[in-house]
Amino acid sequence: MTPTRATRAPRSPRRQAARARAVASAVTDPELPMLTLADLGVLRGVDVVGDSHVVVEITPTYSGCPAMAAMRDDLVRELTGAGFDRVEVRVSLDPAWTTDWITPDGRAALAAAGISPPGPAPSSTGPIPLTLLPTARQVRCPQCDSPATELVSEFGSTACKAQYRCSCCLEPFDHVKEI
């Protein structure tokens, strides 16, 4: 059998998988563009099936997160642009996303952008205790590093953030809330 058209040399599956992972890992979050989806912990898996079919698994941060569609589109665009013929983005609901999955690089990028990174997430197994007092957190001002900060609201500009104010430099800032 003589090939009727020029075929490129097959790439090694391991290299293809590593390449797909590198491309997917570099895609940034639409709402927190200083973070990659990998930094945010939303990117749960990247697999290459066959030569050029990529399956990406992502986990939503919040049930109503409107950025999911943009994330999916960005992943498809970047991977297709990198030469993968078929890109499939799957949603993985279980286990639920937790802020504990934000990487150290991600936390540093948040702080550098003036957003206070989350502390350890509370346990979400067993009965969830009622908390009538504002959540006590050791939040430092991302502008002036003062520990004197006060909570303005547990609900911020997006579902994932709480609003704080620095008592020292008086700047308001966002804190990624622990879930």
Partner: peptide, 24 residues
Amino acid sequence: DHVLAAVAAKGVKELAYHRDYAAR
């Protein structure tokens, strides 16, 4: 049901914020 279990596991984290907000 895997889906209901996953929706609930996610949802309790969200509902905890709603409940605390209203309770305060």
